[in-house]
Design a binder for these strands. Structure first.
Length: 566
RNA sequence: UGACCUAUUGUGUAAUGGUAGCACAACAGACUCUGGAUCUGUAUGUCAAGGUUCGAAUCCUUGUAGGUCAGCCA
């Protein structure tokens, strides 16, 4: 490291968000034996989206950075909503993101026995009781924030509760007939503390425990205890659980003594992105009603959708880092996500030439039957990625956009009489414009300068524009799927009376076109990333084959020309 | 309506009582065999009002605005 770099190092103060600050403090004070242990607790009832990715990267990243551990724990306390299919997709997404839970794949349902024993203990201590109110009655008796709740069964004898709870477990009672409630505080201004329900009766089959149980613990009674069982030290979650924290702590108080190890819940603001929706309900609707092709449709903000679109784990890490961690509600610009993926792909993607909207060009002074190979750089950002050979011949395709019959002053591309560089090939000058009966341009005639082979003229003359091309005889046809934002409005829920977010869908979020690409791409494999020069980054789709190449547009290149035109 | 939380440029996020900075976006320019990348520059901000202090984005008070909670969902 030279002096300059050292200086930079010193001046660069690493920004530390409030959660990391807490962790550093806890670690330095030797709390919990100086351990750091985080977890990601998804409910297996849907696919992960980019908001989950932020949470995963946070919890895993912190554990990794401070030599801690990271658990994966499925929060499967509601047998009616959860499915094994989701367990698999969630694990795949985590692996892809690089979050390594090692051998610690847990399920809240693993703790049902322990949870039951602790519940019995609380009943014996007079801190929990069986309540025979129906769901409607519980709701009626809940009171309002300023009026205390009522609970007629809270003072029933311990033995009676013990007996009833055992019989609840044995399946003697129908659903909704009774619950186990913690005796906390009916008058608390925090509604979660008004004798919260710990167990409810559900005669449902669970994806892991089968028919063993007909009572299931609620989230509040499960989550903190699961953290405790696993030795979690910092339990990170989103803001809507803030009001649950006193209850989280109350339950833990019943199991621990002051000074003992205990997990701590810390909340941060969830991620929101404009031009998309994030709620499981809405995403599910897009899938079910076929507005998209599935959970992994490249327009979806799901981890699997982003992956298919061409995002890399690194690009999501860049994104998550730029977004930051704080407690205020936020709506992140979609452009930050685009920036993150460009940032990563710019360094990694092989450059190729492909023409999406072809215009035929005949190089009139180039030999009829000649084809020559020209050397092209694979990535100007990374010399180690080498070069490749690109065929050139008399008839080529260029982008229709790259020719203008009556150009404005600022237009650097091909126009009558104007000379441009054909990338990696030759200088070429437009001599004729051929049109059909309707006056539409059907082909362009050019002459080339044989002296300018490789893209530079020995006389040192400069051209302002460089355009891409493919040799017509050698071109390979490919399908390109041009993806754009799923919604037209940055707030999809911002709709007129009587409408919903569906009315804001962008009808042009997917446009499929045939393109001509250079033969180098003949063997492009699914998931490979390419930059079509001057156009966009593309990722080879899972369904792509050598006979039927499919490229998904991840994100366009920045385009200052299109801005200038406006 | 009660409790809890939040408020810094267009969007995010720092500044931990001492020069309001960074990123994205925007705009202007340089450079360029990608109108890409890179580089340089510009404009825009502390919710409001009081108070404490030599000094307040930061502490206090009161407002205002927004979020969360009254599922046997998580």
């Amino acid at each position: 490291m030279n002096i300059e770099e050292l200086k930079n190092q010193e001046n660069k103060i690493e920004p530390v968000h409030f959660i990391e600050e807490i962790i550093r403090k806890d670690l330095s004070e030797g709390k919990n034996q100086g351990r750091l242990h985080t977890r990601f607790p998804p409910e297996p009832n849907g696919y992960l989206h980019i908001g989950h990715a932020k949470a995963i990267l946070l919890s895993y990243g912190l554990a990794k950075k401070y030599n801690g551990k990271f658990n994966l724990r499925f929060d499967d306390t509601n047998p009616e909503k959860e499915e094994t299919e989701y367990v698999e997709s969630i694990k795949e997404d985590l692996r892809w993101l690089g979050a390594d839970w090692e051998d610690r794949e847990f399920y809240a349902s693993d703790y049902f026995d322990q949870l039951f024993d602790w519940a019995v203990m609380l009943i014996k201590q007079g801190k929990a009781y069986v309540c025979e109110l129906s769901p409607e009655q519980v709701s009626e008796n809940r009171g309002t924030p300023s009026v205390p709740a009522k609970s007629p069964f809270r003072d029933r004898p311990i033995q009676e509760s013990l007996d009833l709870f055992q019989r609840m477990k044995n399946g003697e009672f129908p659903e909704n007939s009774m619950t186990l409630r913690a005796k906390v505080d009916l008058a608390s201004p925090n509604m979660h503390m008004r004798d919260p329900i710990m167990y409810r009766i559900k005669h449902a089959s669970h994806h892991r425990t089968g028919d063993k149980w007909c009572i299931y613990p609620t989230y509040d009674w499960t989550h903190g205890q699961s953290d405790f069982i696993e030795g979690i030290t910092h339990s990170l979650c989103t803001l809507e659980f803030e009001n649950h924290r006193p209850l989280y702590d109350w339950y833990l108080d019943q199991l621990t003594k002051p000074g003992d190890y205990r997990p701590r819940q810390i909340e941060f603001a969830r991620l929101n992105l404009n031009y998309t929706v994030m709620s499981k309900r809405k995403l599910l609707r897009l899938v079910k009603e076929k507005y998209v092709s599935g959970w992994d449709d490249p327009r979806m903000p799901t981890v699997s959708g982003l992956r298919r679109r061409g995002f890399t784990p690194e690009s999501l890490k860049i994104f998550a880092e730029k977004v930051g961690i704080a407690k205020r509600e936020n709506i992140i610009d979609f452009s930050l996500l685009e920036y993150a993926v460009r940032e990563d792909l710019n360094k990694k993607a092989i450059r190729v030439m492909g023409v999406i909207d072809p215009l035929k060009v005949v190089i009139t002074n180039y030999p009829e039957d000649k084809t020559e190979m020209l050397e092209a750089v694979n990535n100007p950002e990374d010399e180690s990625m080498g070069t490749r050979q690109v065929p050139f011949s008399r008839v080529i395709y260029i982008e229709r956009d790259d020719f203008m019959e009556n150009p404005s002053k600022k237009y650097f591309r091909l126009s009558p009489g104007n000379e441009v560089r054909l990338r990696y090939a030759y200088f070429a000058k437009c001599t004729d414009v051929i049109k059909n009966d309707k006056g539409e341009i059907t082909e362009i005639h050019c002459t080339y300068d044989p002296e300018s082979k490789g893209g530079n003229s020995p006389d040192g003359r400069k051209v302002k524009g460089t355009i891409h091309w493919v040799s017509a005889n050698d071109a390979v046809e490919a399908e390109v799927r041009l993806y754009d934002r799923l919604f037209l409005n940055e707030s999809p829920d911002d709709v007129e009376e009587g409408m919903d977010f569906i009315s804001n869908l962008n009808p042009e979020s997917l446009i499929i076109k045939k393109a001509f690409v250079e033969p180098y791409l003949k063997n492009a494999k699914p998931k490979e990333k390419y930059q079509f020069e001057r156009i966009a980054y593309f990722s080879v789709d899972y369904d792509s084959t050598p006979e039927n190449l499919i490229f998904n547009r991840t994100v366009t290149l920045k385009d200052s020309w299109s801005k200038m035109k406006q």
